[in-house]
Amino acid sequence: MAYDPASLDKPFEILKAFDWGGDASAFQPIDAAVVAAHADPAARADLEKRLATLLGAGTSRAAKEYVCRKLSLIGTAASVPSLAALLPEKDHSHMARFALERINAAEATEALRKALGTVLGDLKIGMISSLAGRGDAASVPAIAALLSGESKTAVAAADALGRIHTPEACQALAAAGGITDKAAGSAIADARLACAESLLRQGKRAEAKAIYTSLSESAAAGTTPTAKATRLAAARGILACLDTTTTS
């Protein structure tokens, strides 16, 4: 069926003031249009524009959430500014990321990177999470700088670097010295294991083994369960590095 923008006027109007418990069937035509827009770039652009417009003031939280879900599917660079504006807002930051994390545009990454430098607390962890989800190599320095910070953020940063596991990320993790926070230290070890695994997968056995050996040595003196878990994981990894009969 051809895209008929006028047919969506009323659903969009209802959507703007929608609250949980309202009649969601009223804007089901928007759902259908979003799915159908896959084969119609012009319709998709128009829909995106109309959706993004609703992210401003005067729209209910439930409606903004709905919009973010739809933009997570069809959003492009065009809707990034509207979404980015929500990133610092406690009530909307996650749903803005819900869309931005999926949008295939450099602008989306840039918006998340920028917010990483400005938002605080849990919202910052959210940015770290989404940048990791996108595998954003360029944000490695900014994330690595958080390794020595507050515990929860440092843990998230380590997790993220493990997820990104580019050579730079692995290097940043290896270079993280003087971390006294045990939770962060544990997360860094886990992330380094992830780095070694990626190297092993690439057939870089020697490099992987070097990480495992380093982890094994640094955990050797530890008596905590985490230190032992790291030692065991490193030992498992070293053995995997030596076993050239397995697929790599």
């Binding site: 896959h38 819900f98 994390e101 849990d122 770290i128």
Partner: peptide
């Protein structure tokens, strides 16, 4: 199919990270 790939995962609400 980029849209299908978008549905392979979803952003997690802070402070949760996978």
């Amino acid at each position: 199919d980029e849209e299908a790939n978008r549905l392979c995962d979803r952003a997690r609400r802070e402070p949760w990270i996978l």
